[in-house]
Nucleic acid binder design. Structure first.
Lengths: 230, 230
DNA sequence: AAGGCAAAAAGTGCATGCAATTGCCTCCGG
DNA sequence: CCGGAGGCAATTGCATGCACTTTTTGCCTT
């Protein structure tokens, strides 16, 4: 083969394929409904069809691609209805995590959450969307971990990744940044005082709002986003 | 190849493998930690290693088998802690389904639920564990569908199947049958009067009790079940 | 000109073969 | 007697080839 398959090192070939293809889907580079031809993908990444097939299988299990027997794979196309169901699920899952976090977070976890949350306030003041996004992700991850429930954690992360393609532009909405922080603040406050019911409700509301914000973009997401190849 | 691969017809070869191996895991025929050798499985089912590999991949995504790169696959071994987290998740998921069902079930869905539930009462009187298990599964499925949320449905079914190996003996506990029905009754009643909070709580409690009942069996599940190699 | 049918082209599904990695067993040194 | 290095067997990971299914295209019929 040509180069030592430089991009995306580490892990087995299949892992690389999963990441390579998955990234392109999550970032919107490959658009819903787009055909995923095994042969072309294999050629594109300079591997044989076997690891590509396995990667498509895994991505299918993740819900990112749809596989039709004997008819090839396409990037999963989600109906507006199914999208709504995923957002609703996400709200419930986050609510559970927040509720459990309020009950179970260790004092050091609470401290960490508080500190990160306050740090992210600076990003809001600066209006740094990109940086805030990092803190946002970290914030939610802390909630998932704080729930101290491996399985819920897994389900939540899975659902979140599946929603990723539809969430990416949410912070472009004017004022969304500050609002997001305030919503986080409600959650943090509730967790700090151990109010599991309030924490759950605040988390649910937070996701619901994100859901609506994203829906705006889901609609005009049809415009060509195609960039350079990788 | 020899015979027309008679067992488990329909679907692609991989589907058959997934079902064949998955069944053996879910029913406890293959025990946690047991090595799943690709070559032997391929020989056993008279197919090549390729579909077996893909099946193992899917089962791994389902959480039924654990795959260690270059080191083969084993039947997923869950720690007591992770098992507890799955049961807890299940309780929360069922609670969500019951809550949504109370709010969203159509009148015909409500009618169907009620009828099935009443029918299952006969199984309790007869002490027919096997038959009751069918109604039980059906009952929960109705709850999942009644939530009218495709994604929650998916997560719930996935979690349920993953718990299947640890639930199978629950109805062997004396008196569990009648208690189960009474718990179902609480859920049904709450749903019928549209009391989402009560429905959710009843469903959560129901699963929690099942969880404890199953834990009893999870402990002495270590005894050798090994039979002939299928 | 439009519809339908058939043959070819394309692409998936599975089998098989080879390379690479792992685990084990042996042998040697301490 | 124990610990480690090296080689061997077993098993996984990937590549390739063939068969079958689906789709497309071009021609023939109406």
């Amino acid at each position: 083969m040509s180069g030592k398959r430089s991009l995306i090192r580490s892990g087995t070939t299949v892992d690389q394929m999963v990441r390579a293809i998955g990234d392109r889907i999550v970032t919107g580079y490959l658009r819903p409904g787009e055909k995923l031809d095994e042969t072309s993908l294999a050629a594109r990444f300079d591997v044989s069809r076997t690891p590509v097939r396995e990667a498509l299988g895994r991505l299918s299990a993740m819900g990112l691609v749809e596989r039709r027997p004997n008819r090839g794979a396409i990037v999963a196309v989600v109906t507006q209805e199914h999208l709504a169901s995923m957002f609703e699920s996400m709200a419930e899952l986050e609510a559970i995590c927040a509720r459990f976090s309020a009950e179970r977070m260790t004092s050091s976890e609470r401290r960490g959450l508080e500190i990160e949350h306050q740090a992210s306030a600076r990003m809001v003041q600066l209006g740094a969307e990109e940086d805030y996004e990092y803190f946002n992700t970290e914030f939610h991850s802390r909630l998932y971990r704080g729930a101290h429930n491996a399985h819920i954690h897994e389900l939540t992360v899975m659902t979140r990744s599946r929603l990723a393609p539809f969430r990416r532009a949410q912070f472009m909405l004017p004022g969304r940044l500050a609002k997001s922080w305030q919503e986080h603040d409600l959650i943090v406050t509730a967790i700090m005082r151990g109010d599991s019911v309030a924490a759950g409700q605040a988390a649910r509301d937070h996701v619901s709002i994100v859901s609506e914000a994203s829906a705006v973009f889901a609609a005009d997401d049809r415009k060509p986003i195609r960039r350079h190849v990788a």
